[in-house]
């Protein structure tokens, strides 16, 4: 994993004693449609619950998967034949690792500029915050496209980091 730092990542401080997670994993493949989103998020919730993850870790992983998959559903296959979203979630003792694969349009969420968080209300676009939130709540982001056209996003949320 490249481990490229997110440009707008919040400050993280090591926690004194993070409880290790219980190893747990699950996955799901769905067609990229909005009615599949609850099932994808249910996979995240189940793995985080089984691993004993703290509420803030579970919240962050759910938020990251929600934002990425919602974006894929809305934009990933625009102009293309509908395709799959392949989600896998794995809890390891010190982290939760998410992989999301698709065969749609290439989109590296690290490429978007950070939004202006101090703009007045009137100047706020209704949208554009999802990628910023993903970059804010995970520790590592890796994105690769293979020659066969599969895009694979890997997100890592470590435990024992405070935001």
């Amino acid at each position: 994993m490249s481990g490229q730092p997110a440009s707008d990542r919040a400050a993280r401080l090591p926690a004194a004693a993070a409880k290790p997670l219980v190893r747990s994993a699950a996955g799901l493949t769905v067609d990229a449609a909005i009615d599949a989103l609850p099932r994808l998020l249910d996979v995240v919730d189940r793995v985080c619950h089984a691993s004993g993850a703290e509420a803030d870790v579970a919240f962050d992983v759910r938020l990251a998967v929600d934002e990425v998959c919602s974006n894929l559903i809305a934009h990933g296959y625009r102009g293309l034949a509908p395709g799959p979203i392949v989600l896998s979630v794995e809890a390891q003792p010190d982290r939760v690792v998410v992989q999301i694969a698709d065969r749609g349009r290439r989109f590296d969420l690290r490429s978007l500029p950070a939004p202006d968080l101090h703009a007045p209300l009137e100047a706020r676009p209704v949208g554009g915050l999802g990628c910023h939130l993903v970059r804010s709540v995970v520790d590592d982001i890796d994105y690769r496209t293979d020659p066969g056209g599969e895009n694979r996003l890997t997100l890592v949320r470590r435990v024992g980091t405070k935001r």
């Binding site: 509420a55 803030d56 919240f59 939004p115 968080l117 101090h118 939130l133 804010s136 709540v137």
Partner: peptide
């Protein structure tokens, strides 16, 4: 409260 508050903070919504 909780995570919802943090999402608002991260998005700059607590200022508007």
């Amino acid at each position: 409260s909780g995570g919802v508050r943090r999402v608002l903070d991260l998005s700059g919504f607590t200022g508007i």
